[in-house]
Simulated assay, not measured.
Amino acid sequence: WSFQAVTKATQKLPANVEDILEEAFLREAYVIRNYVIPAELRVNTDQTQTVYQQGNKATWNKRGEKQVGSIGKDEKRAFTLVPLISASGELLPFQAIFQGSTDASCPSKSSPFYQEAKELGFCIEPSKTKTYWSTMETMKSLVNDIISPYFERKKRELNIENPGEQRSIWKIDCWSVHKSKEFLSWMKTTHPNIIVIFVPGNCT
């Protein structure tokens, strides 16, 4: 720990945060027990902004200098990284979303470790919007190309007796796209055996 400058207001937790978390825990435990869902079939994801060049609001400089430069202070370029992990501790391939309309907005195929990332199943795609945030379409590709194939593979490895009936859990936060009627309806229609569970809002 060290003394640091304050950069943002602390997010306020709900007054009844302990009750909310207890209810969420019991709800998830109920689903796991009733549908007999093993740890391998429970996945959590989160979107995170990844800035290309992290800047800093402070740096070492000669005492008394009025103008102090810092590398990356004006850097605002970023992409969205979506890490995924199962309750059994297995790391799934990541999804990376870059601002732009075509694959030219994504890292070049000649970039270091690009081929290794693709061989590991990483999904690297353009947002096809003016931002780099996840969209309805990138969420669909996340499920279709990474999450669903992972669940199906695990069902085979676990020798699930009725894989077509086996439920899985996907735990995500209360982001607007996640909770939209369009996305949840698509999930129920396209992936009815994946149960979506939300992390309570303002509790992360």
Results as ranks from 00 to 15, higher is better:
32 I>F: 00
79 F>C: 12
144 N>T: 12
104 A>E: 15
17 V>Q: 14
17 V>E: 12
132 Y>D: 15
144 N>R: 11
46 D>I: 03
59 T>H: 07
1 W>G: 03
158 L>R: 07
26 L>T: 03
124 I>P: 05
5 A>F: 10
129 T>Y: 00
11 Q>P: 15
194 I>G: 09
42 R>S: 03
180 S>E: 07
53 Q>W: 02
71 I>K: 14
32 I>P: 00
116 E>L: 06
17 V>K: 14
185 S>Y: 03
170 W>F: 14
25 F>L: 07
13 L>P: 10
161 E>L: 10
128 K>Q: 14
204 T>V: 04
13 L>N: 11
123 C>H: 06
74 D>C: 04
142 L>D: 12
136 M>R: 08
29 A>L: 08
21 L>R: 09
6 V>T: 14
35 Y>D: 07
114 Y>D: 12
98 F>A: 15
114 Y>W: 14
90 E>L: 11
101 S>A: 11
142 L>W: 04
59 T>A: 12
161 E>I: 03
145 D>A: 04
89 G>E: 10
29 A>T: 06
173 D>W: 08
106 C>S: 13
164 G>S: 13
25 F>E: 11
124 I>S: 05
93 P>E: 10
62 K>V: 14
33 R>H: 05
2 S>M: 06
6 V>I: 06
2 S>W: 03
57 K>H: 09
180 S>Y: 02
12 K>V: 05
72 G>Q: 11
140 K>C: 15
50 T>Q: 02
14 P>E: 06
64 G>H: 05
33 R>M: 05
7 T>N: 07
133 W>V: 09
166 Q>I: 00
113 F>Y: 11
174 C>Q: 14
112 P>R: 00
23 E>M: 03
87 A>T: 12
160 I>F: 03
176 S>V: 12
121 G>F: 01
67 Q>A: 04
64 G>L: 04
60 W>P: 00
135 T>V: 10
143 V>W: 05
142 L>T: 15
123 C>I: 06
101 S>W: 02
40 E>Y: 00
75 E>P: 01
96 A>Y: 10
96 A>M: 15
50 T>A: 09
42 R>I: 13
198 F>Q: 03
148 S>Y: 14
165 E>R: 04
97 I>F: 05
42 R>D: 02
3 F>V: 12
87 A>M: 13
123 C>Y: 03
99 Q>D: 08
81 L>S: 14
7 T>Y: 06
57 K>M: 04
107 P>S: 11
34 N>Q: 06
51 V>Y: 05
35 Y>V: 00
10 T>K: 15
159 N>T: 02
147 I>T: 10
38 P>S: 03
187 M>D: 13
109 K>T: 15
22 E>Y: 09
79 F>T: 09
53 Q>K: 07
101 S>G: 12
13 L>D: 02
121 G>I: 03
151 F>Q: 01
10 T>L: 08
199 V>D: 12
77 R>Q: 08
196 V>Y: 07
71 I>F: 13
90 E>H: 11
143 V>E: 12
151 F>D: 01
67 Q>W: 02
142 L>R: 08
2 S>H: 08
138 T>N: 09
47 Q>R: 01
186 W>C: 07
79 F>I: 10
70 S>C: 12
53 Q>D: 01
